[in-house]
Deep mutational scan, measured.
Amino acid sequence: NRRVIAMPSVRKYAREKGVDIRLVQGTGKNGRVLKEDIDAWLAG
């Protein structure tokens, strides 16, 4: 149960899109989840 590193704005964006942020692979520094990662996850 790893802790997800993401800015609050990215967490909010994921919530609005209905994405469980824990399932998204972060590509930022130290595995940080970026807004682009959410978009990529939604695109498949």
Rank of each mutant, 00 (worst) to 15 (best):
V24R: 01
G18S: 07
I21G: 01
Y13P: 02
E36A: 15
I21D: 01
I5M: 03
K12C: 12
K29R: 12
A6V: 07
E36K: 15
S9K: 13
R3E: 12
G28D: 03
V24H: 01
K17S: 09
K12G: 05
D39T: 05
M7L: 15
V10S: 03
K17A: 09
I5P: 06
V4H: 06
N1G: 15
D37M: 01
R32Q: 13
M7E: 14
S9I: 10
Q25V: 14
I21E: 02
E36N: 11
D37Y: 00
Y13G: 04
N1Q: 14
G44W: 12
A43H: 11
N1M: 04
I38Y: 00
D37W: 00
A40W: 10
D20Q: 06
R22D: 07
Q25W: 12
N1S: 15
G28R: 02
D39Y: 03
R11F: 11
I38S: 00
R15E: 11
E36I: 13
R15C: 10
D39N: 09
A14W: 02
E36F: 09
T27K: 06
E36W: 10
Q25H: 12
I5A: 07
V19H: 01
L23G: 08
R15W: 15
G44A: 15
K12Y: 06
G44C: 07
A14Y: 01
I38T: 00
L34G: 06
V10P: 02
V19K: 00
A43M: 13
A6E: 03
I5G: 05
D37P: 00
K12L: 09
I21A: 03
G44N: 15
L23E: 11
Y13I: 09
I5D: 08
K12P: 01
I5R: 07
Q25Y: 10
G28C: 03
T27G: 05
G26I: 02
D39K: 05
N1D: 15
P8E: 10
V10Q: 02
E16P: 00
Q25R: 13
G44H: 14
I21Q: 01
E16L: 14
R2W: 04
V33W: 01
N1Y: 01
A43G: 11
G18R: 09
R11E: 06
G26W: 02
A6K: 03
R3D: 13
K35L: 11
G31Y: 06
R32S: 12
G26V: 02
M7K: 15
V24E: 00
L42D: 04
N30E: 11
G18A: 07
M7N: 15
G26M: 02
M7V: 12
L23I: 11
R22M: 11
V10C: 06
G26D: 02
L23C: 07
E16F: 11
G28T: 03
R22N: 14
I5L: 05
G28Q: 03
K35D: 04
D39I: 06
K17I: 08
A43P: 05
R11N: 04
R2D: 14
K12R: 14
P8M: 08
Y13N: 04
V10Y: 02
L34W: 04
Y13H: 11
R2L: 11
N30V: 06
K29T: 13
R32M: 14
E36T: 15
Q25S: 14
A14Q: 00
R11G: 03
R15N: 12
G44D: 15
R32H: 10
L23Y: 13
A40K: 14
S9P: 07
A14L: 01
N30Q: 11
A43V: 13
D20N: 10
D37C: 01
M7D: 15
Q25K: 15
S9A: 14
T27V: 03
A14P: 02
R3Y: 02
E16A: 13
I21P: 03
A14T: 02
